[in-house]
Amino acid sequence: MEQRRQLITWYVLFAITQVTALVLVLIDNSTLADRLSAAGLLCLNGVWFVLYGRRLVVRGDDDWRGFVYAAGSLVTFAPAVWFSGNATFALFGLVPQIYMVLPLGWAFVPTVVFVLTPQVLTWLAGNEPSLPWAAALLIIGFSQAFGWAITRIVQQNQQRGELLERIEALTIEAERARWSADIHDTLAQGFTSIITLLQGAQPNVELALQTARENLREARALVASNAPSPLDGSTLEDALRRLISGVALPSTFRVIGDVVPLTTSAEVVLLRTVQEALNNVVRHSGATRVDVVMRFDEDGVSLEVRDDGRGFGDAPEGFGLRGMRARLEQVGGTLSLSSDEGASVLVEVPL
């Protein structure tokens, strides 16, 4: 989702530079034929990006195909500058594109060619370049430095993402190991004692019941110690508000009806279910906003997560939705999905 936002930002920048260059060309004081020729070439340059360059940007293919795109862009850019010097403004969009489709070291040569093209063509036409040669060289140096900085930021973000994934995996493994150790040291040992006692005579039955009760308390303690951290010391309503406020989309949260205390297991299931639903909205729906409503009535509590995205379509339910259903079944709840003007996930748990 974040990558999509970044790409949209770049697309807007490219569109602005292209439209600005077109306007500057059309208001140039050259002949009408020259202005129309330059404008047409700039339009072809934009079409070339949409049909070919955009795929390279989205995929992140930093290979020889970037040179193909650079060559195609130069074929339309250079004659546009020959017909109208104002077409030079398109460089503000073309240079970043070069660094997005080629590795940093490879992008230097095409950048030099693009930046110096207006200078060379103006000189060949017998005119004095509007941009001093020293300034052109400064632009080349700045472009390379900017490209290096952006590349480093991208690499650091990728490394940070890989580190977070590794930390998450290690955390899960550590949690599993802790659970295994706790169960072995408490429940397993206790149940072993129960079996041993029951295999004896009748007088040991009372002692077996006592041991079973102690292990039941141990099991409840283990479950309580692993309750979701957002619920620690707060109500379900407060935990949901914090969860929803952290979503990177405009969002609202409403509570309808009189709040009724719920069991810890029901609160945990509701919180985790809403968390998974919000995660799906952010990652898959393409929505611009999300609304969550918690409703209490005589029969139980319901939570609806609704967004204005593309809906569920015909895609089969993934692991996340299946996991939500499995959690709800543990507390007798149900899950309903609808795709009417967006997507809606309705969770209902009886009191």
Rank of each mutant, 00 (worst) to 15 (best):
R5H: 09
Q6T: 09
I8Q: 13
Q18S: 10
V19I: 15
A21S: 15
D28R: 07
R35C: 02
L36M: 10
S37E: 10
L41V: 05
G46Q: 14
V47I: 15
W48M: 08
R54H: 13
V58T: 08
D61C: 01
D61V: 02
D61T: 11
V68A: 07
A70G: 00
S73N: 14
S73R: 00
G85K: 05
G93C: 05
P103N: 03
W106V: 15
F108M: 09
V112Q: 05
F114Y: 02
L116N: 05
Q119R: 13
L121C: 08
W123L: 13
S130L: 11
L131F: 06
W133K: 08
A135I: 12
S143P: 04
Q144R: 12
V154P: 00
Q159N: 15
R166F: 03
I167K: 09
T171F: 03
A177C: 08
R178I: 05
S180D: 08
A181C: 04
G190C: 09
T192D: 14
T192E: 14
S193P: 04
L197V: 09
L198D: 05
Q199L: 13
P203S: 03
P203C: 04
P203M: 08
A208C: 12
L209Y: 13
Q210N: 08
T211I: 15
A212I: 10
E214S: 14
A219L: 15
S225K: 11
N226F: 04
A227F: 08
P228Y: 01
P228L: 08
P230F: 11
D232I: 07
D238P: 03
A239V: 09
R241D: 10
R241Y: 06
L249C: 06
F253I: 09
V255E: 07
G257C: 06
A266E: 12
L270A: 10
R272A: 06
V274W: 01
V274T: 07
A277I: 01
A277N: 02
N279D: 13
V292E: 00
R295N: 02
D308R: 06
D314S: 03
P316A: 05
G318T: 09
M324A: 00
R327H: 00
E329D: 07
G332V: 06
G333Q: 02
T334N: 13
L335I: 02
L337F: 04
L337R: 09
S339I: 00
D340T: 12
A343Q: 09
V347W: 00
P350A: 06
